[in-house]
């Protein structure tokens, strides 16, 4: 546990730098993988870094009918809140920087903050395209919150049913991998919940097929339409950090395993192995829930996004929750 203020500050800076670098690498990885799936060669792995450097060197245009302070503040808030999520998530077995203060419920609220900053920035840009995009982002947010909540509650409920205290705490979830607690029926339920969470992830990151708020071909970039230069670079960084945060959430909920602990390696070498294993896991999650889905599918209309989440995924999630509950009750009997 990190307690003192200087230690928290150092940890915060480390997590911020780590998440930005890994986030941009993940975006580069996603672009290469998507290119290979389309029989292309694709950009180099460092392409997002080059893009960010170019954007930082470009002029920063603020439109005439925008609200300048909100327009410029939105990208900063988006990036800051995206990094804040990672302060509460365990990374590679290291305790979260702010481990004492928050649990899964707080993480769920924090996850909406970058999206809210995007919405505020979209409305502040004063462009009709951005306004439509911001409205769609709000609708998407309302749509995916429910299945996400089902997954979180299902896991916390299973831990609580085992008599474990603080079931929403990420440290508890990390210490008690949920797969070990359930029987075969519950494992099927958990698998369904995992799939639901993997399909919530692209909406959280506004990637195809749930990139309706940005919709490059119909809304010309939607929320981001008026952003250029430094502000656009900040939003790109946010995208990368959010990818790391969502992938880390999936890993923290469903795969809180540490390779070094299983293999019995401790010390510095163990930490390095843990870190590499964690990066492998989040890369795998990104590959499945971002790259594969976005290459395989076209964009949904906004009403289809809502029905996918509120009807199909909600039913699937509730079914998974039911299976987990039935499994627990049968186990007790």
């Amino acid at each position: 546990m990190i307690e003192t203020l200087p230690a928290i500050l150092i940890g915060a800076v480390l997590v911020a730098v780590f998440s930005i670098i890994i986030g941009l690498l993940l975006m580069g990885f996603d672009r290469i993988v998507a290119a290979r799936m389309q029989a292309r060669i694709g950009p180099p792995l460092t392409q997002p870094f080059i893009d960010i450097r170019k954007l930082l060197a470009k002029e920063n245009v603020v439109p005439e009918n925008a609200i300048p302070w909100l327009f410029n503040l939105a990208p900063v808030i988006a990036l800051a809140s995206a990094i804040t999520i990672l302060f509460y998530l365990p990374i590679a077995g290291f305790a979260p920087v702010l481990s004492g203060g928050g649990d899964l419920i707080l993480v769920m609220y924090l996850l909406t903050l970058p999206a809210l900053a995007l919405v505020a920035g979209g409305f502040a840009s004063g462009s009709p395209y951005a306004t439509v995009g911001a409205q769609r982002e709000m609708v998407t947010m309302i749509a995916y919150e429910f299945p996400l909540a089902i997954v979180v509650v299902a896991i916390a409920w299973r831990l609580a049913a085992e008599g474990i205290s603080l079931p929403f705490s990420l440290a508890t979830i990390g210490a008690n991998p949920v797969w070990g607690l359930v029987g075969p029926l519950g494992a099927i339920g958990l698998l369904i919940l995992l799939v639901v969470l993997l399909i919530v992830t692209p909406a959280e990151l506004s990637r195809v097929p749930f990139d309706t708020p940005e919709a490059e071909t119909e809304l010309a970039g939607g929320i981001l339409v008026e952003y250029s230069g430094k502000n656009l670079a900040l939003f790109s960084l946010t995208q990368g950090v959010k990818t790391v945060a969502m992938a880390s959430l999936v890993v923290a909920l469903f795969f809180p395993y540490r390779l070094a602990a299983i293999a019995g390696i401790s010390g510095f070498l163990g930490a390095v192995i843990d870190l590499l294993f964690y990066i492998l896991l989040i890369t795998l999650v990104t590959f499945i829930s971002v790259s594969v889905i976005r290459v395989a599918m076209a964009r949904f209309r906004i009403n289809q996004v809502v029905s996918v989440y509120w009807i199909y995924l909600a039913i699937a999630g509730l079914g998974g929750l039911l299976l987990v509950m039935v499994d627990q009750i049968m186990g007790v009997v």
């Binding site: 060669i41 170019k54 245009v61 970039g221 981001l224 008026e226 656009l232």
Partner: peptide
Amino acid sequence: TPRYDPERFGIRLVGSPRHAD
């Protein structure tokens, strides 16, 4: 198209003139 794949060199079509070089 994939035959020429300009994304190899970082060339991308964007939807907004604000993003463009």
